[in-house]
Amino acid sequence: MDRRIRVLIAKPGLDGHDRGAKVVARALRDAGMEVIYTGLRQTPEMIVSAAIQEDVDAIGLSILSGAHMHYFREVKRLLEEQGASDILVFGGGIIPDEDVPKLQELGVAAVFGPGTSTQEIVDFLKRAVPERWQAQGLA
């Protein structure tokens, strides 16, 4: 049976630029995934608790305010703390190249900058999520 990929798209912090988050959410949905969009101004606590409650496979964070290091670090930390570090974390927004390796070191699976095609994000999730299922013996 084909298991559907469940994704939480979240806007952490005070930033209200939500065009990208919404376009991505819709593209993932059109690609057959189940998508939950949090709406604006979510704290890391709210995001992680929604992700666990909704039993998602991946969390996509959209941040354009420059506060990405803080929010990715917090979300990863809370996931770990709550035993949910199997949830894949990816993101996008205005993120300088210099910060991408630092985010990867935190365990962020992928960072998609401006101009990324939504297909690229779909392909990434369709590859990375089943890989995790396999690793966990779920697939």
Binding site: G13, L14, D15, L64, S65, G66, A67, M69, H70
Partner: peptide, 10 residues
Amino acid sequence: PLSKGEVGKC
């Protein structure tokens, strides 16, 4: 508390 990480950023 909600300002954490955002002060002076944009």
